[in-house]
Protein backbone atom coordinates (compact mmCIF):
# COMPACT_ATOMS: atom_id res chain seq x y z
CA UNK A 1 0.00 0.00 0.00
CA UNK A 2 1.60 3.23 -1.14
CA UNK A 3 0.68 6.30 0.80
CA UNK A 4 -1.29 8.76 -1.28
CA UNK A 5 0.60 12.00 -1.76
CA UNK A 6 -1.13 15.30 -2.19
CA UNK A 7 -1.36 15.87 -5.93
CA UNK A 8 -2.89 19.26 -6.72
CA UNK A 9 -6.16 19.01 -8.62
CA UNK A 10 -7.59 21.80 -10.75
CA UNK A 11 -9.89 23.68 -8.39
CA UNK A 12 -12.73 23.94 -10.97
CA UNK A 13 -12.99 20.23 -11.63
CA UNK A 14 -12.77 19.34 -7.99
CA UNK A 15 -15.50 21.74 -7.07
CA UNK A 16 -17.80 20.46 -9.80
CA UNK A 17 -17.53 16.81 -8.82
CA UNK A 18 -18.05 17.56 -5.15
CA UNK A 19 -20.93 19.84 -6.01
CA UNK A 20 -22.43 17.12 -8.16
CA UNK A 21 -22.13 14.50 -5.42
CA UNK A 22 -23.52 16.92 -2.88
CA UNK A 23 -26.56 17.94 -4.89
CA UNK A 24 -27.25 14.39 -6.15
CA UNK A 25 -27.12 13.19 -2.55
CA UNK A 26 -29.55 15.91 -1.56
CA UNK A 27 -31.89 14.96 -4.41
CA UNK A 28 -31.55 11.30 -3.43
CA UNK A 29 -32.40 12.07 0.17
CA UNK A 30 -35.52 13.90 -1.03
CA UNK A 31 -36.54 11.02 -3.30
CA UNK A 32 -36.29 8.61 -0.37
CA UNK A 33 -37.76 10.89 2.24
CA UNK A 34 -40.76 11.93 0.14
CA UNK A 35 -42.34 8.45 -0.09
CA UNK A 36 -41.56 7.78 3.57
CA UNK A 37 -43.15 10.98 4.81
CA UNK A 38 -46.13 10.49 2.49
CA UNK A 39 -46.49 7.03 3.95
CA UNK A 40 -46.50 8.42 7.46
CA UNK A 41 -49.32 10.84 6.65
CA UNK A 42 -52.58 9.18 7.73
CA UNK A 43 -54.79 8.56 4.69
CA UNK A 44 -58.22 10.15 4.24
CA UNK A 45 -59.94 7.07 5.51
CA UNK A 46 -57.98 6.76 8.72
CA UNK A 47 -58.62 3.13 9.53
CA UNK A 48 -58.45 -0.24 7.93
CA UNK A 49 -61.72 -0.92 6.17
CA UNK A 50 -63.01 -3.81 8.22
CA UNK A 51 -65.84 -4.36 5.81
CA UNK A 52 -65.62 -8.08 5.65
CA UNK A 53 -66.31 -8.57 9.30
CA UNK A 54 -67.21 -5.70 11.54
CA UNK A 55 -70.60 -4.15 10.83
CA UNK A 56 -71.03 -1.74 13.71
CA UNK A 57 -72.20 -1.60 17.25
CA UNK A 58 -75.22 -3.53 18.41
CA UNK A 59 -76.29 -0.74 20.74
CA UNK A 60 -76.30 1.71 17.85
CA UNK A 61 -78.56 -0.34 15.66
CA UNK A 62 -82.27 0.26 16.15
CA UNK A 63 -84.69 -2.62 16.28
CA UNK A 64 -86.75 -3.15 13.15
CA UNK A 65 -84.12 -1.60 10.89
CA UNK A 66 -81.63 -2.62 8.25
CA UNK A 67 -78.35 -1.39 6.84
CA UNK A 68 -76.08 -2.16 3.93
CA UNK A 69 -72.59 -3.26 4.86
CA UNK A 70 -69.74 -3.48 2.35
CA UNK A 71 -68.43 -7.02 2.40
CA UNK A 72 -65.32 -7.07 0.26
CA UNK A 73 -66.68 -5.95 -3.06
CA UNK A 74 -70.25 -7.01 -2.42
CA UNK A 75 -73.00 -5.49 -0.32
CA UNK A 76 -74.51 -7.36 2.59
CA UNK A 77 -77.75 -6.34 4.19
CA UNK A 78 -77.81 -6.54 7.97
CA UNK A 79 -81.23 -6.55 9.56
CA UNK A 80 -82.21 -6.17 13.15
CA UNK A 81 -85.68 -7.63 13.44
CA UNK A 82 -88.39 -6.13 15.58
CA UNK A 83 -87.71 -8.80 18.20
CA UNK A 84 -84.04 -7.82 18.27
CA UNK A 85 -82.69 -10.78 16.31
CA UNK A 86 -79.95 -10.08 13.80
CA UNK A 87 -79.88 -11.47 10.28
CA UNK A 88 -77.54 -10.86 7.40
CA UNK A 89 -78.04 -11.66 3.74
CA UNK A 90 -76.34 -10.97 0.48
CA UNK A 91 -77.49 -7.48 -0.47
CA UNK A 92 -77.63 -8.28 -4.16
CA UNK A 93 -81.09 -8.93 -5.55
CA UNK A 94 -81.16 -12.28 -7.30
CA UNK A 95 -83.18 -10.81 -10.13
CA UNK A 96 -80.96 -8.20 -11.75
CA UNK A 97 -78.25 -7.38 -9.20
CA UNK A 98 -79.75 -4.28 -7.66
CA UNK A 99 -79.01 -3.57 -4.01
CA UNK A 100 -81.87 -4.47 -1.72
CA UNK A 101 -83.07 -2.55 1.34
CA UNK A 102 -85.09 -3.19 4.46
CA UNK A 103 -88.61 -1.80 4.41
CA UNK A 104 -90.08 -1.23 7.81
CA UNK A 105 -93.60 -0.85 6.44
CA UNK A 106 -93.51 -4.28 4.77
CA UNK A 107 -91.36 -5.89 7.43
CA UNK A 108 -89.42 -7.45 4.60
CA UNK A 109 -86.43 -6.96 2.32
CA UNK A 110 -87.32 -4.98 -0.76
CA UNK A 111 -85.66 -4.28 -4.06
CA UNK A 112 -86.42 -0.87 -5.50
CA UNK A 113 -85.75 -1.86 -9.09
CA UNK A 114 -88.62 -4.25 -9.68
CA UNK A 115 -90.44 -4.45 -6.38
CA UNK A 116 -88.98 -7.83 -5.49
CA UNK A 117 -89.55 -8.86 -1.90
CA UNK A 118 -87.82 -11.31 0.39
CA UNK A 119 -88.91 -12.36 3.83
CA UNK A 120 -86.60 -12.16 6.81
CA UNK A 121 -85.27 -15.62 6.10
CA UNK A 122 -84.08 -14.40 2.73
CA UNK A 123 -86.72 -16.33 0.76
CA UNK A 124 -88.10 -14.60 -2.29
CA UNK A 125 -91.77 -14.08 -1.55
CA UNK A 126 -93.03 -11.79 -4.24
CA UNK A 127 -92.02 -10.07 -7.43
CA UNK A 128 -89.49 -11.20 -9.97
CA UNK A 129 -86.57 -12.54 -7.84
CA UNK A 130 -86.01 -16.16 -8.86
CA UNK A 131 -83.88 -17.26 -5.93
CA UNK A 132 -83.56 -16.55 -2.22
CA UNK A 133 -80.78 -14.34 -0.87
CA UNK A 134 -77.71 -16.09 0.50
CA UNK A 135 -77.53 -15.88 4.23
CA UNK A 136 -74.47 -14.68 6.14
CA UNK A 137 -73.48 -15.49 9.65
CA UNK A 138 -73.85 -12.82 12.30
CA UNK A 139 -71.73 -13.01 15.42
CA UNK A 140 -71.88 -10.61 18.32
CA UNK A 141 -68.72 -10.12 20.34
CA UNK A 142 -69.40 -7.83 23.26
CA UNK A 143 -71.12 -4.97 21.50
CA UNK A 144 -69.63 -5.42 18.05
CA UNK A 145 -71.54 -7.05 15.23
CA UNK A 146 -69.46 -9.24 12.93
CA UNK A 147 -70.66 -10.66 9.66
CA UNK A 148 -69.00 -13.62 8.08
CA UNK A 149 -69.63 -15.99 5.22
CA UNK A 150 -71.50 -19.20 5.66
CA UNK A 151 -74.38 -19.96 7.95
Amino acid sequence: MEKSTDVPVQPGKRDFLKWLIGSATAAWVVSVAYPIFSFLKPPKQGEVEVSSVKAGKLSEMAKDSGMIVKFGTKPVILIRKADGDLKAFSGTCTHLDCTVQYRKDFGSIWCACHNGKYDLNGSNISGPPPKPLDEYKVIIKEDEIFISKGT
Binding site: S38, F39, Q45, V48, E49, S52, F146
Partner: peptide, 27 residues
Protein backbone atom coordinates in the same frame (compact mmCIF):
# COMPACT_ATOMS: atom_id res chain seq x y z
CA UNK B 1 -47.79 1.74 11.59
CA UNK B 2 -50.72 0.30 9.67
CA UNK B 3 -50.50 -3.47 9.93
CA UNK B 4 -52.85 -5.27 12.28
CA UNK B 5 -51.80 -8.74 13.32
CA UNK B 6 -55.12 -10.48 13.79
CA UNK B 7 -57.00 -13.07 11.82
CA UNK B 8 -59.84 -10.67 11.00
CA UNK B 9 -57.77 -7.69 10.04
CA UNK B 10 -54.38 -8.85 8.79
CA UNK B 11 -55.41 -9.27 5.18
CA UNK B 12 -57.56 -6.16 5.20
CA UNK B 13 -54.84 -4.04 6.74
CA UNK B 14 -52.32 -5.05 4.08
CA UNK B 15 -54.97 -4.34 1.47
CA UNK B 16 -55.46 -0.99 3.14
CA UNK B 17 -51.73 -0.29 3.05
CA UNK B 18 -51.56 -1.16 -0.65
CA UNK B 19 -54.69 0.73 -1.65
CA UNK B 20 -55.15 3.62 0.69
CA UNK B 21 -51.86 4.66 2.26
CA UNK B 22 -49.70 6.84 0.05
CA UNK B 23 -46.72 4.86 -1.20
CA UNK B 24 -47.97 1.94 0.85
CA UNK B 25 -47.65 -0.24 -2.26
CA UNK B 26 -44.01 0.83 -2.56
CA UNK B 27 -43.08 0.22 1.07
Amino acid sequence: LYYKGSEDLAFESIHFIMAKVQFGWLI
